[in-house]
Amino acid sequence: MSVMTQTGTAGAGAAAPVPVLKRPSPYPGWFFLPAAIIYGLLFLLPTVASLYFSLTRWTLFNSTFIGLDNFAQFLREPFLIKGLINTVIYAVVTSGLKVVLGLLLAVLLTSQIAARGYLRSVVFFPVLVSTVGVGITFTVLMHPTNGMINEGLAMLGIKGPGWLTNPSLALYSVALVDVWKGVGLATVIYIAGIVAIPKDYYEAARIDGATKLQNFFYVTLPLCRPATVTVIILSFIGGLRTFDLIWAMTRGGPGFASDTVASVIYKQYQAGFYGLSTAGNVVLFALIAVLVVPLTMLLNRREGHE
């Protein structure tokens, strides 16, 4: 008990002066400790250390300070810049498609449609499947000559492209698979948002004689805005950080055509350029900060005005 009292007041004492005779706080500060130690040691400390090591040539055993050379290299080497541009394209394409398709599917799956439960399950299940497994499966399905997708297209008389072998297409093919796997999450988020809209709004719209299209644009769309914000931000961050799907499908190839920052980080790590790899981490961090923070503020501000 006395130990409890000490630790309890010590935690609280740091926050505000506590009268000597007060009971121990029922919400002791040491409850933070286990989480804080693990998070601080394995997440915060490496993140802070990365700021220093990104400025060095590093072998894990010793590091030489070389200033901003790593970042200069990042902006000079064409294949590294390519990775940077690809990352942004990938994030924009995947989050854009997930918003549009997720919203349409959610509207469809909250309407009076038959087999709703089956459809919801089938759309959502890929979210839970291993990304590497999905990547390998679609690599086979997208095989330029024997793949099922192109054979299906051939039956319709269309000559399918080399989805993953054509350098100008590979990144978008991977992005499409990402949407296939992730649209279920966007859909259930939108379903939760749409179900939470009070029925009175639709009632009022019906009395005013609104068409289905007007219902969608003037009731559903504005009122499920929180869901839109969640979907955009989640899938945008996910898109910027994406690694496993690209690595399972193309390894950044053909050439460097589908490299993203995350795959560059892994390649530089494999090659033993630890400083450059860490600089890649810092670049990715900066990219997320520069794009996501303003995006969040923009999305939340407009909400305040409505």
């Binding site: 926050a15 915060l44 490496p46 993140t47 250390a49 590093w58 630890y274 860490t278 961090f285």
Partner: peptide, 26 residues
Amino acid sequence: RFNGLIEFFILAGLMIPPAVVPTIWL
């Protein structure tokens, strides 16, 4: 007054990509 700081760390943890090589080093 620490709540704000803790919430900041939570959001940071959701957004920041983990620094891989420094973590290996650690």
